[in-house]
Design a protein around this nucleic acid. Structure first.
Lengths: 158, 158
DNA sequence: TATTGTTATACTCTATAACTATA
DNA sequence: TATAGTTATAGAGTATAACAATA
């Protein structure tokens, strides 16, 4: 995420953090969110690694596969990254033959991003991997809790 | 923090992201969490900047002020950072006279981190700044929603 | 032999500014 | 004059391994 976009490291023994789980900081929503997001991204990165993707490149590929024909600027706004970052990741995805850049006929400054056949295929596998990571990450939550969480996060994220 | 630990940049016009807010990716909990966490950290960083702190250094200071006498390893586990990172931030905090390292008499390999007087004072201001940031960030949520969110995040984070 | 903290180093991610081409 | 994308570069953040002190 930004997060994001975070480390992919083994978890410490739970006992170690439990002793500090009662401090004031652990009650602050910003801290809780950052820690939960880091855990989730870490999990997702582990699942995506075999496919040669990370959360960022996966996210771009996912939006490219949405059928909305996003421009690079729109991608950057949604994923919170600078134009130069978007360019770098897109260069890699395009070089791997997963997406293509097409100049928008209505505004020839913009380029829309569309997936290739292999791009769609990889996205399907990648989405499955991310879903599995989410399943692991949200394992402690009931279906009802998951719905609530998604609703609340949507309010915050948009 | 992890995420984390993310950028501090101006928000794009909401209209720009709204067009893409309906894509599949925007329904994935890991993405939502990463984005919400990035927004929250960004807000917190803006509030902390005048005090010479960032989310990471603030977090260490906060745990140091908790009265639990955390060791550096415990800090690293809770905040998801490597020993070398902990050392670097702690060096800075100690140099500014905000915390002290004390060798644990029971295990002379470990060092516990305790705040100084000025450290406690700065923490008070910093916590107020972070609370204001959280207030802004959670503005869209009712008190009930905030409680639910905190509960769900605690389940995920620990 | 394993662990805590430290140092040094390399790598990744992110930020900034200058440039082009279009508008 | 402003915006989308590109490039180059620097900075912040993170990862890795070797080391000293202690267990």
């Amino acid at each position: 995420m930004t997060s994001s976009p975070t480390a992919d490291r083994p978890e410490p023994a739970p006992d170690d953090v439990d002793r500090l789980a009662g401090v004031d900081l652990a009650a602050e929503p910003i801290f809780l969110m950052a820690r939960a997001a880091a855990l989730g991204s870490s999990m997702a990165n582990r699942g995506l690694a075999p496919l040669g993707l990370k959360v960022r490149s996966y996210s771009i590929l996912a939006v490219a596969c949405s059928g909305t024909g996003p421009t690079q600027r729109e991608l950057g706004d949604l994923l919170r990254m600078r134009p130069s970052q978007t360019v770098a990741i897109l260069d890699e995805l395009e070089q791997r033959g997963l997406v293509e850049r097409r100049t928008d006929p209505r505004d020839r400054r913009s380029k829309t991003v569309v997936p290739t056949g292999p791009g769609r295929e990889l996205y399907a596998s990648a989405k499955a991997a991310v879903d599995r990571a989410a399943e692991t990450s949200l394992g402690a939550l009931s279906p009802r809790d998951r719905e609530d969480l998604a609703r609340l996060l949507r309010l915050l994220a948009f």
